[in-house]
């Protein structure tokens, strides 16, 4: 661990190179990071690939709140959670991706709950539009087509 750092602090580096100094207790709320720390393969900085600075900042904000508020009233935390997950679809998907990939259980729970509330009363047609990407993914099963797909330009 870097000597210039305070004890029990970790540096997380987002996919676009921004660095965040985070208390270890907060960082290890991600099980993936926890495993890295426990296996002592975490060097000075822990790279967090696939998660950009914007999303990483959100995830850290969430984890900090949940760590600080261990003593806080559960109802306050619930209010925070529901406000936190109340975002546009794009950010929501990115957050889900990050929470799932980095294994942050509390965040994933809150996000999934939110999506469930969102789609609960929706019609089948609406869901199909919302999950269009998923449908396309289903059709494209072979890697070959997958590559062409990713390289294609859509307008």
């Amino acid at each position: 661990m870097s000597s210039s750092l305070e004890k029990n602090m970790l540096i997380l580096r987002s996919s676009d190179g921004e660095e965040f100094i985070v208390p270890e207790v907060v960082a290890v709320m991600s099980k993936a990071i926890k495993n890295m720390v426990e296996d002592e393969c975490a060097s000075n900085t822990i790279p967090v690939p696939n998660v950009d600075a914007n999303i990483l900042a959100m995830v850290i904000e969430f984890c900090k709140k949940h760590d600080e508020s261990e003593a806080e009233a559960a109802s306050d935390l619930k209010t925070f959670d529901s406000e936190f997950v109340n975002r546009g679809q794009e950010a929501l998907y990115d957050l889900i991706t990050a929470a799932n990939f980095r294994d942050v259980k509390e965040l994933l729970d809150a996000l999934c709950q939110n999506v469930a509330e969102m789609i609960k009363g929706k019609s089948v047609h609406h869901i199909r539009i919302q999950f269009l990407g998923y449908q396309l993914f289903e059709i494209l099963t072979s890697n070959f087509i997958w590559n062409i797909w990713c390289d294609r330009d859509f307008d």
Binding site: Y93, I96, T97, Y134
Partner: peptide
Amino acid sequence: KSVSNACILE
């Protein structure tokens, strides 16, 4: 993005 989201969604 939406396609990569799709794999996560599974």
